[in-house]
């Protein structure tokens, strides 16, 4: 199989059997936003807005570069945004405007 075929038919997360280095057994406590993000995933699932399989596919759809550079919950929140856009529940403009407002609010409370 050539490189392009592999690129489109092997998902970046499909790592079973691939060469990999030693384990890093360090563990980190979830940051508050990460825990909220995990809770959001569960709520989106049982509210039937974004189910868990949709989330998984959404993370895969970020593509190798984003998957490689973003952390675990960073991938989730970006995937949620993309899926909400696709479902017409949110628009990129709405999210962008609200993100600016959130940043402004945080800045002015510092």
């Amino acid at each position: 199989m050539n490189d392009l075929s592999t690129l489109i038919t092997r998902l970046p997360n499909d790592v079973g059997g691939q060469p990999a280095g030693p384990l890093d057994r360090s563990e980190h406590e979830l940051l508050p936003w990460e825990k909220r993000c995990h809770a959001l995933a569960d709520v989106l699932d049982f509210r039937k807005i974004i189910n868990t399989e949709e989330k998984r596919r959404g993370v895969e759809a970020l593509g190798s570069e984003q998957i490689g550079k973003l952390g675990y919950y960073e991938r989730w929140i970006v995937a949620f945004a993309n899926i909400l856009f696709q479902k017409g529940l949110l628009t990129p403009a709405e999210l962008a405007v609200r993100m600016q407002a959130v940043e402004e609010r945080q800045r002015s409370s510092e």
Binding site: T9, R10, D14, G16, R56, R57, E60, A61
Partner: peptide, 12 residues
């Protein structure tokens, strides 16, 4: 088969 995009049966 080798789906393009999403699947849940690992390649191995």
């Amino acid at each position: 088969r080798q789906p393009i995009g999403h699947y849940r049966v690992p390649t191995y």
